[in-house]
Amino acid sequence: MNSGINTTGRRLGGIFELIGSRVMEFLDQAGYTILLLARAFYYLKDAPPKAREIVTQMYFAGVKTLVVCSLVGVFTGMILALQTGIELQNFGMQYQIGHLIIASMTREMGPFMAAIILTASVGSAMAAEIGTMKVYDEIDALEMMSISPVKFLVMPRVVALATMMPVVSIYIIVLACLGGAVVANSILNVSFNVYMKHLYKGIHFKPIYVGLLKSFVFGLIISGVSCAYGLRATSGELGVGHATRSSVVASFLMVLIIGYFITAIFYG
């Protein structure tokens, strides 16, 4: 009887220990990321001499993801128009589809889609690149030259992604509206003029600035999280893989959680 209680106690203790260690790990990583972003902000004063690196990173985030952003944007608009348009058709309100698309894209979908694409393509590449530099002593070499890795690597990436995320979001929103127009016109029998008229009606200032704010914050989160995981990579190539995977998972989760809170603050 006593041994049964002891075994259950040990198991429970083990579970609590595991949960506790995971919570501590999360808090440690979150704290490190916040401090890293704070240090990156401090080095903004050195942004002008780093313009070339910032532009290069902006090129990776914007131009290099153009094709996938275009496809995601167009198909998101088409799917949205098709799914909601069919329902609206039941009420004879399919002409409102433009309004619905611009509202959902500016409020949530545009920034969220941009965040997903840039996490998967740019954020993961940042974590892998910086992680590789870490395990091959390049970060230590920078330290030995009294060059701050935050100034040299993190700040340009944070600036570039925080700048490009709103641009990519707007691009995705525009293409989603075009994709929606194609479906509205070809399947829902809504003329282009009617679609555009309702689309313009759906454009409001608040969803736009909240959407852009979200994109900007997502850019900070993804770059900060990715660089933090990269800088803490250990144990060779295996560690780089682990850092990359963890950075993508953490970025997704943080985008969802912070996205919810921004929505709650402005619309709650």
Binding site: Y136, A141, M144
Partner: peptide, 19 residues
């Protein structure tokens, strides 16, 4: 540490060049 490192150099095993 910065002052010490200004007078010190490390040749890392991998070279640690920026790619």
């Amino acid at each position: 540490m910065r002052k010490l490192r200004e007078r010190m150099g490390v040749l890392f095993q991998s070279g640690a060049l920026i790619n």
